[in-house]
């Protein structure tokens, strides 16, 4: 190849890159399919500034891990990163039906994604989270890209952010009202059947450590949504990472009912541990064992949470008989 041509290409591209970079946020008109669905656009403000997106997007790729929220809002994504936390080639079981037509492009909690796979889907709207900021520029060259800044703990905030980007706050609010009502009902029902003041604990057991769900995952469903009581001695969660304690720390938490999440190996190790076996809840057989796939990640998903509400009472009834 002629080295001069080559140099020219490089220089032009670098310059182009710089220019595009400086004007991030301005829409790129080079979208591949410009037909009527793209005709109407609107401006949304995201973590990066203002973005012009189609008013009625048809081919949404979401790699922020919020594909379930899009479903609730009435959009089906064509590419997703809501893969199972323990096997990135599969959907988590509770999203299998919803996502079955979407391509898996990675795992939302990782910053690397199959970026060519995203482009190949020919999206008209791309949703990323701040974890994937590094590819923002390259994606926004191809299609309008919205970066959602994920809240540290508050899933409702994430939910509302997605809804506001899609300008569909009403549907979101309706779903949330319904969800809250279901949660309160489930909470009241459990309270009346299993004691008003009973306390509940949920955790992930992994490699001899106990990750306590306090303000996130299953824990926030139990406490924040259903209004169940926290046991005494709970470590408090201040950011997205779960508090990690040892068996001794677990023994300091005095819960009446326990949801133990773990892989088969981890649960086996747990039930062999003598300290675990002398916990009050364990002696009273008040433990629900749940497989880590999907229950670990399910507590972080809106649809997953709603499904958990449907079954939580049955789970508790199942052990207390």
């Amino acid at each position: 190849m002629n080295s001069n041509t080559f140099k020219k290409i490089i220089t032009t591209t670098i310059l182009a890159g710089l220019i595009v970079f400086t004007f991030t946020g301005c829409s790129s008109s080079g979208s591949p399919n410009e037909n009527d669905s793209q005709a109407e656009t609107r401006i949304v403000t995201d973590a990066k500034g203002e973005v012009e997106i189609p008013a009625n997007p048809q081919r949404i790729v979401d790699i922020s891990g919020n594909s379930d929220i899009f479903h609730i809002l009435g959009y089906e994504v064509i590419g997703t990163a809501n893969s199972d936390a323990y096997d990135y080639t599969k959907y988590p079981s509770y999203l299998e039906d919803i996502l079955k037509d979407a391509a898996i492009l990675g795992f939302s909690m990782q910053d690397t994604m199959d970026i060519e796979g995203i482009l190949a889907l020919d999206p008209d709207l791309i949703i990323i989270s701040n974890v994937q900021e590094k590819m923002y520029q390259q994606l926004s060259d191809v299609a309008p890209t919205v970066m959602i800044e994920m809240a540290q703990i508050d899933w409702i905030e994430d939910f509302k952010k997605v809804a506001s980007v899609m300008e569909n706050e009403d549907a979101a609010e309706a779903w949330l009202v319904d969800y809250r009502q279901k949660a309160t009902e489930a909470g009241e029902s459990i309270k009346s059947n299993h004691g008003e003041d009973s306390t509940y604990l949920s955790f992930l057991a992994s490699g001899g450590q106990i990750y306590i769900f306090d303000g996130a995952g299953l824990g926030s469903i139990l406490y924040d949504d259903m209004g169940l009581s926290k046991p005494a001695g709970m470590p408090e969660q201040t950011n997205i990472s779960l508090p990690v304690v040892t068996y001794e720390g677990l023994a300091s938490i005095d819960a009446d009912f326990i949801f133990a999440v773990g892989t088969p190996d981890d649960l086996a190790a747990l039930t062999e541990n003598p300290v675990w076996n002398s916990l009050e809840a364990v002696k009273n057989n008040n433990v629900v064992e749940l497989p880590a796939s999907p229950y670990f990640i399910q507590g972080y998903s809106s649809i997953g949470r709603a499904l958990f509400l449907n079954e939580v009472e049955g789970l508790i009834d199942g052990i207390s008989n």
Binding site: I14, L18, M109, D111, S241
Partner: peptide, 24 residues
């Protein structure tokens, strides 16, 4: 003590990756 997302970002970096390379 990092969250999983942050942890993975750090790991990608520490292990060395050309992910996300651009002209800039």
């Amino acid at each position: 003590t990092m969250s999983k997302g942050d942890y993975n970002r750090a790991l990608t970096w520490i292990s060395g990756s050309l992910w996300g390379s651009n002209w800039l």
